[in-house]
Design a binder for these strands. Sequence first.
DNA 1: CTGTTAGCGCGTTCAA
DNA 2: TTGAACGCGCTAACAG
Lengths: 342, 342
Amino acid sequence: MGERSRGITISDVAAHAGVSPASVSRVLNGRTSVDPDIVRKVQSSIATLGYAPSLVARSLVHGRNTTVAMVVPDLENPLFQGILKGLSLAAAADGYRVLVADTAERVDDEEAIAIEARQRCDALVLCAPRLPEAKLRRLVERTAPVVIVNRPLPDLDVPVVGVDYVRGIRDLVDHLVGLGHRRIAYVSGPETSASNAERLRGVDEALAMHPSVRIDLIAGGSRPEDGEAVADAVVEAHRAGVTAIIAFNDLVALGLLARLRELGVHVPGELSVAGFDDVPMARYATPRLTSMSVPRAEIGAQAWERLRTLIGGGPAPHAVLFRPRLETRESTTAPAAAGASA
Amino acid sequence: MGERSRGITISDVAAHAGVSPASVSRVLNGRTSVDPDIVRKVQSSIATLGYAPSLVARSLVHGRNTTVAMVVPDLENPLFQGILKGLSLAAAADGYRVLVADTAERVDDEEAIAIEARQRCDALVLCAPRLPEAKLRRLVERTAPVVIVNRPLPDLDVPVVGVDYVRGIRDLVDHLVGLGHRRIAYVSGPETSASNAERLRGVDEALAMHPSVRIDLIAGGSRPEDGEAVADAVVEAHRAGVTAIIAFNDLVALGLLARLRELGVHVPGELSVAGFDDVPMARYATPRLTSMSVPRAEIGAQAWERLRTLIGGGPAPHAVLFRPRLETRESTTAPAAAGASA
DNA sequence: CTGTTAGCGCGTTCAA
DNA sequence: TTGAACGCGCTAACAG
């Protein structure tokens, strides 16, 4: 069954060039000085034989892959895509590649997947927004070097690169309050989501700073469908006096916008709507969506930076939190003159 | 410098359990039958030592990684994201992981990146819509086993899993003609894009089938910004009698929609707009965007299916082309009663 | 059923 | 400067 030969090895090149494998290795890596004649012969042999060194063998010798793993709950989420892109490009600049593992939102498999992915690579970038903190702490120890993305993890020597959702929500509330809104509703994300918890803290802090403001909670989710699904509840809240909505993220906000239009609620005329994350589509929505911008690619790049330090045996890098930037667009404006509430 | 030891090996386990490395290997792989006592001792040792086998060493022995590479021009494109997700999940079901390489649209680096990525893996999924065909053919030979995604490559024993863009455009034109449109404009994609060439063929075929229909060409692009940029040209075409627009893809269509609204052109009242790919956001646009649905995840899954066959030494699988499905939404409707043209 | 040996392909000592 | 020998960690073949 004409099995193709196992691939040509360094010994084949050595034989063809009439030198030792060690010499071939030398010209390959340009380590020590080699006789120019040898170099030429070897290079010629490499070219004619079409030789390419086995990266696996090299990995075994060196004890590293030049590959890092990234575990995400859902590859279709624009947030993780952006992070992946940033990570991938930054790592590539240093000769590293990224292995992706999509846990498909199955929290129970997350641990096993992360460990397995880590075994194939030199390090790990972990996005596990719903993994219980205790489990996460254990996982982090088993998978070092690792960097946690997009969720806080205090009191642990693990680099975290994340987003200051607390501050982001506060800033967003400030924006709405500045526009004149006094009754706001927050459409929350998944209950177990760490970043949703952060946002809720932001809501609390905002309330503390604005005693005259009231913020209702509406149970939502993380996807456009969830945004559509809560539209009725949002309308009801609006009737009860709410003049502005903060959605868990842009996906929810976009779904909500679509449904509100069908329900005949004018945004921002009757109701202001703001999202979070500033996904690429936000600025093309109707109306263009006000959102808190998160530096997705930069998060990925910073994750790589920290991983690189760790791989190099450096000290645990400090955590870094990006402060979201308000992107004011059309979907938020001052509330209608005549308030609907008392 | 408390360097952490090199990691514990199979020999360590063997020593701890008082058996040979081979026995440990046996219980690890459950190949041949092993004395139950040995099994217990080894498992115990593995547990207490926290041993995990080196996948790199295994790869060297077996000659395979259980990893496949995927090369894409842009990880932020929803089309490739969906394919990646489908590929990743399908491969994972067979114990394979996916390595991603983003070429950042740099066509000149595509070849080198693909070769490098391939070297790390057992096979390659190649998305290279702008690579000149001659180069692609050469590349394909160097990187086998490989499957080409989303572009045709005739007369070659390489499995292609793609989309029938020709047919898709024809179906889309049929839809518009069925609605009553006679003057249509196609906002084209990148000049070097293979799938744009396919779409243009679709346009030609549609014209041949509908002698009474005229289809103008407007130079566009592949991103939302491009859609915004062509809005003026689109309005001009509309003034000249065009009643429906087909955008290269949904991203362009969404950008176009946003700008048309600002320009005061009502969609679909004055102008129908259709996209291509049916990205997740299409159905949340205003108006909800008519598009040709492409089974992104399924493409990824099929790519894996073919790769798996190839890796297993099977015969070159046949090419497969998915026929896009029309998703009729709000953005296309019958043209206004009084035509603007002569 | 078990241990010993050899080798996957390469980098890196150590002599020469 | 060069080559021979060894080891990275593991699995497969071969004896015992």
